[in-house]
């Protein structure tokens, strides 16, 4: 099992009162499976994804990522897990503006001190169809192209699980379809599990499992 979540709760304090964002969330995901997390805006989807990827810590509950209890780990230990096992695609791409497409994709391999980050990055850029634009900076690329670079970067780190936060949210329908097809296509070539937060029903339908959140709770 790649992911096992039990009674997850996230609470944030807001002035004198506290706000419950996630409550009693439990589910699991097998290796190589894909999961869609859906729900209306403000239902806690992105918060859940952040907790699953170890970007934030929960108020209570447990998360086992590849059998590692990341709920018990501090930020440094979680950073190590993210480096070794996790890939991430953001809605707003989050590329480093001062790096070219190639350099952005090289980043995860550089962080792992891999031998040849350049060849690896070139391979994935070619795979997402951007070999010709590898020396362009993010501001010289369209939104769809930036997201393809982000996908190449997510796969370049040889992760076991990939998290995507509304990967088509900032794109038009044509580019959105292209990106979702590409995401599943490249994912199928690896043995990665995939967790996608999305409003897009077509994208959700492509996943093996779907959970829907409402006011921080799983409703179906």
């Amino acid at each position: 099992m790649i992911l096992k979540v039990n009674n997850l709760r996230k609470e944030v304090s807001s002035g004198d009162s506290s706000l419950v964002i996630l409550d009693d969330v439990s589910f699991s995901l097998e290796e190589g499976q894909s999961l869609a997390i859906t729900g209306p805006s403000g239902s806690g989807k992105s918060t859940l994804l952040g907790l699953l990827a170890g970007l934030d810590s929960a108020s209570s509950g447990t998360i086992f990522l590849d059998n590692i209890p990341i709920h018990d780990q501090d930020e440094e230990e979680r950073a190590l897990i993210r480096k070794e096992k996790v890939g991430f695609v953001f809605q707003s791409f989050e590329l480093l503006p001062s790096l070219t497409a190639l350099e952005n994709v090289m980043l995860p391999s550089e962080l792992k001190s891999e031998a040849d980050p350049k060849s690896n990055a070139e391979f994935f850029l070619e795979r997402v169809g951007l070999k010709d634009r590898q020396h362009h900076y993010p501001n010289q690329l369209s939104g769809g192209e930036q997201q393809r670079v982000a996908i190449a970067r997510a796969f370049a780190c040889s992760s076991k699980i990939l998290f995507a936060d509304e990967p088509t949210g900032n794109l038009d329908s044509k580019n959105g379809k292209l990106i979702s097809d590409l995401l599943f296509e490249v994912n199928s070539e690896t043995d990665n599990a995939l967790v996608v937060v999305t409003h897009d029903h077509d994208l959700a339908k492509k996943c093996d499992k779907t959970i829907s959140l409402q006011l921080g709770k799983i409703v179906e």
Binding site: L55, L80, I81, R82, K83, E84, L96, L111, C157
Partner: peptide, 15 residues
Amino acid sequence: HQSAILRTLGASNSL
């Protein structure tokens, strides 16, 4: 912003 991206990709705080 850069630190947020690097740390998401697994860069340690010490780095």
